[in-house]
């Protein structure tokens, strides 16, 4: 049984099993789920939709993974994404001819910069002022939506500059453009966290902040950095959201994204108690969520009700991570090995 233990001991094993089960379910019960067609040189189909629609959550999950690894949480990402959408929409705006008010590239950079600053703000509150992460990011969770609404004068702002649509709707080599953004960001993050000592430091800070400080690690700056990075990721996700519908709606853009991102991270095997993190797992987690959503769609259940399913998943995951729960289950079955 050693091979079995080695296999299940792999961090990615359970997230992948969950995803595979979900896909297998669809294989049998959802007609044409795996059908992929080629239209105008693009790939079309449910699977492609999952990849395309899942990319904002995947982006957010990358940033959220590092935040959660430091034992933090960032519930402002949805609002920050809305700010990004609002800023980029107001900057590019444009008339019906599709001529942007400001150059597209600069507008994008500025929007992402604004979001990075928002993340820095969160990081300052957590690392310098010492607020609990939940409270610190709660401020932007709601004030951020206010800022997004004020940016767009409380209106839905439309964009007509065609090139901007590529971000959310474009295809390269048959695959959605946004997927490439995810891959690039993921590879960059993997590189920076695993080829430098950053990942080790993040984990050290998450496992034991005091010990990390005593070991000479500048824990404050590490924390500041991960929140800023989370804001950066939220900014990019906001661009995709905005580009998807070519409009910015401060009230509805990115609503509920924070839970999806947190859920993706937790599903991917990173504990809410901080410490060891698994970026690839978070991506798989995001794919699970998106597949779940598509599955719910396929069964003609109103998408809003998907929130109930997600909430239930959070309960289950939280319970599975609770040592108290595991030991009481173990007691119930009279077995001790579960309690480990």
């Amino acid at each position: 049984m050693a091979w079995w233990k080695r296999l299940t001991g792999k961090k990615l094993f359970w997230p992948l099993v969950a995803l595979a089960l979900l896909l297998a379910f669809n294989l049998f019960f959802t007609p044409h789920f795996f059908q992929i067609q080629i239209k105008q040189g693009h790939l079309y189909g449910n699977v492609i939709d999952i990849l395309k629609n899942g990319s904002p959550i995947m982006l957010l999950a990358i940033g959220m993974t590092l935040v959660i690894a430091t034992k933090g949480i960032d519930i402002s990402v949805g609002s920050v994404a809305a700010i990004s959408a609002g800023v980029v929409a107001m900057l590019i705006g444009g008339d019906l001819q599709g001529i942007p008010k400001h150059p597209i590239f600069e507008s994008i950079v500025l929007a992402v910069l604004v979001c990075t600053v928002a993340g820095l703000w969160n990081g300052m509150l957590v690392s310098r002022i010492g607020m609990q992460p939940i409270i610190a990011t709660l401020i932007l969770f709601v004030a951020g939506r206010g800022i997004a609404m004020v940016t767009t004068n409380a209106m839905v702002v439309w964009l007509y500059a065609k090139p901007f649509a590529i971000i959310g709707q474009g295809y390269v080599f048959g695959l959605p453009f946004s997927l490439y953004m995810v891959v690039v960001l993921l590879l960059m993050t993997l590189f920076v966290t695993r080829r430098t000592a950053l990942g080790l430091f993040i984990e050290a800070v998450g496992i034991n902040p005091t010990a990390a400080r005593f070991a000479g690690i500048n824990a404050k700056n590490i924390i500041l950095l991960v929140y800023a990075f989370s804001g950066f990721c939220a900014g990019i996700a906001g661009l995709i959201v905005c580009s998807n519908v070519m409009s910015a709606d401060g009230n509805n853009a990115g609503v509920g994204y924070e839970l999806d991102a947190i859920l993706a991270v937790v599903l991917g095997g990173t504990s809410l108690n901080g410490g060891k993190f698994n970026l690839l797992g978070s991506i798989v987690g995001a794919l699970i969520i998106e597949t779940l959503t598509v599955t719910i769609y396929a069964f003609n259940v109103p998408p809003e009700i998907a929130q109930v399913v997600k909430a239930v998943v959070v309960y289950i995951i939280s319970l599975l991570q609770s040592s108290k729960f595991r030991s009481s289950v173990a007691n119930m079955f009279g077995r001790r090995e579960l309690a480990a």
Partner: peptide
Amino acid sequence: NEGIFSELSIKENIILALQARKGV
């Protein structure tokens, strides 16, 4: 509470301060 990182490996625990000294 102030010393060991129980979930990090022994190796990581040992090199941590040296690495912190060298920088990220």
